[in-house]
Amino acid sequence: MYLAKIYVTYKKSILDPQGEVVKSALHRLNYTNVQAVTCGKYFEIKLDTADKAAAAKEVETFSDELLININMESFTYDLSELAEAVD
């Protein structure tokens, strides 16, 4: 069993309105060190595949197909093997 942690954000070329609003709110709270805020989506998805390569391939395929809109978003992911559940 594998656990995919998938991070979806707007492409760099696209304004991230929520990130901008959060940044200005942080500045209003006097966190003046804050330089940039990116606001996105986070998914945890468990997959049961033969091996890690197969899990990676599936994550990449379904992320493009459903999790992101390829016109405006991109994703990164981490994939780790989960310990087998003990009955």
């Binding site: 707007y10 696209i14 304004l15 309105p17 929520q18 609003v21 809109n69 016109n71 405006m72």
Partner: peptide, 17 residues
């Protein structure tokens, strides 16, 4: 229709959320 690819482009959240 944009999500389905039947029209080009995409609709993002409003510039001022």
């Amino acid at each position: 229709l944009t999500e389905a690819g039947l029209l080009p482009g995409a609709l993002r959240e409003n510039a001022k959320p």
